[in-house]
Design a protein around this nucleic acid. Sequence first.
DNA 1: GCAAATAATTCAATCGCTGAACAAATAGCG
DNA 2: CGCTATTTGTTCAGCGATTGAATTATTTGC
Lengths: 412, 412
Amino acid sequence: MIRTHAPAGAVRQGSLRELNLALVLGRIAAADRPPSRADLATATGLTRATVSAVVEDLLAGRLVDEADPAPRAGAGRPARGLVLADQGPAGLGLEVNVDYLAVCVVDLAGQVRHRTVHRADLRPVAPADALARLVELAGQARTDAARQGLTLAGAALAVPGLVDDAGLVRLAPNLGWRDVAVPALLAAHPALTEQVPGVPALVVDNEANLAALGELHSRPPGPASFLHISGEVGIGAGIVLDGALFRGVRGWSGEIGHLPVHPQGRPCRCGGRGCLEQYAGQEAIVAAAGLARAELPADTATARLAELAGAGDADALRALQDAGTALGVAVAGVVNLLDLDTVVLGGGYAPLAPWLCPPVLTEITARVLTAAWSPVTVRPSTLGAEAAAVGAAGSVVRHIIARPAGWLARTG
Amino acid sequence: MIRTHAPAGAVRQGSLRELNLALVLGRIAAADRPPSRADLATATGLTRATVSAVVEDLLAGRLVDEADPAPRAGAGRPARGLVLADQGPAGLGLEVNVDYLAVCVVDLAGQVRHRTVHRADLRPVAPADALARLVELAGQARTDAARQGLTLAGAALAVPGLVDDAGLVRLAPNLGWRDVAVPALLAAHPALTEQVPGVPALVVDNEANLAALGELHSRPPGPASFLHISGEVGIGAGIVLDGALFRGVRGWSGEIGHLPVHPQGRPCRCGGRGCLEQYAGQEAIVAAAGLARAELPADTATARLAELAGAGDADALRALQDAGTALGVAVAGVVNLLDLDTVVLGGGYAPLAPWLCPPVLTEITARVLTAAWSPVTVRPSTLGAEAAAVGAAGSVVRHIIARPAGWLARTG
DNA sequence: GCAAATAATTCAATCGCTGAACAAATAGCG
DNA sequence: CGCTATTTGTTCAGCGATTGAATTATTTGC
């Protein structure tokens, strides 16, 4: 549970440097071209002298490298561009999902430097065994990262379920997990990452949350506030507000799947009736399209559905239309409530987006009061299938970028 | 549109003092007993020397007063308690609603030091005339505040409608306002408040938002994250997340009234069908209870309804039960989505809370996945009818408490 | 009346930013 | 080719704010 908040405590002499390190590094990360020290000075409002001093720290800590001088018009001494180091700290992203394990390594610049996906049905596998396989993949990732000059500074694990502050997976229904103490199980494999001060060694979080973070930090960066919807067997939403993931009071936000869309409709496993999940969940869509569910693993079902719809299959098209309408009703409610202007369809919805987006947009236009003044964008995720793993790894490096002082203070 | 965010820009030498001024003043404001300098030092992590220097600034700026030494057990020099000044800056809160105008003055400590409510049906009144009446009331409030030694540092106006960043009221349907440029209309009355650097002279915001802020800053303080629902003719929600009001991308968040609760149900003025407002809006409840709507102004209708329900009138009880159920369906969806643990019923719902809370809670318990692990509280607002005006005034003083440097830097 | 205890202030040291001067490196121009 | 204008980056004295230790202030308990 990373919470990126303002320095709530005392502001001491050294905090000043910490904050300015973060400010300058953040600017370097956000720039679309390698900025010079002078650029950073004007962008941040600091003096060139201060920027030079701060940059010196960043260079010494190997968070930043000097790039080849960028060609520039006009007279004057050529600037030396600054880029995020490609040999510095990196984040390890892990994902356990229903039908695959994924591991990836993301560097400071957000580049995916290593990626492994291991396809297998994880439902019959005991949590400890699944995690053991994941650790094995992580070990390979670790050596590959080292070969590339990267140091794993922390790890994050994405799980399709509810996770509490301590990393306990309270419930992952589609995986069949209940009260799985992930940190304790992984403590037996201590060398997942080096222990870096200020960077949590292992964060466990919900898959939808981490996928939304991945979208937020993708290039080009997503908007500061948006709703990211992962359509898997369940439907999870990652809510990004003002550039930060909103996790809720206990970290369990995003359960969009149980917004009512037909209150007197089909009973749902949550105890309510007519929940969105019963109409736009993957199983519901597949069943409505007339595909036998059991025969296909979840992700190939989605691919098959896209294939059928692309070929003009009437049942598939109708199923997607209905699902999109249900999704649109729910999303319109959320947009009314939170006043968002962007909705991203991710996870299993991404390949189906061409058919889902139109009905979703129709409902939004009809039901959102403010849609007349400013339009709402609905688009598919730019990340691939393992968005959550990439987002998990990204969350680690974003943590370092937001708090570089911790990394710089380490012995080494 | 106040956005309370971290210092995003350069952190210079002086920012240090600014941040620590805010830190110390915030502690004084949050404490339930007048803290000593030593208390503040341990609470903030600053040294006693620094706290003394900071407090000296706050005393000189008349934001803080020394209180009588509080009795303390044990030996040692007695501490001098620090309290928010009752003779310092204050906030002016204004409210235009369908059937009343309200003006109030709130001091730094959050005490309401002046309050005027002018009952009148404002629907037939032109916006400029309504605002002129409000300015007159504000003038009286201003002299009363001066008599009490208070200086009005800024003002906020609550409006039952959508307001954009510039203070333009885009649409206030129940008031009949459309595209009313409030700041321009009030510019003719320039002396609403003294111009204080760092404090916006006039903020215009949605009534539900400001009522939620009032709840957040009431004593005892509300939780850091909650949903505040104002049930008037429309239903508006103020969403407080992590101690800050969430306003959405354009400041139009909180339109909970158009969450679908019966998707194929009654058509709504928003263009959708079966919106919450059609089942739990004030007019809907009154009609369901068999009260003729036109005969009664809105607020007496609510009072009459509470009276009838209290007397055991079957129609009224059934109407409230049905409305509470519809409200509960919508609220359950929001709680699932945002993972909140507190829902506050305010505005017209406050007096009806005894009858609304049970069905709302029933729906939440049935539909919220995580309700089994940690309960959701549903309670009425602690503020009275003019909560929005109080919240508006409170938002001004909270602004000063969050950024005392601006007030201290003023000439005087 | 004295010691112990707690509160608050004073003061030299230090840290990090500022602003101005200075050094470095290049383009344009005669 | 050499000079000037221009822009980048560094150096350094100055200064504001915090720190930590010593000091003063004020009360309780013995």
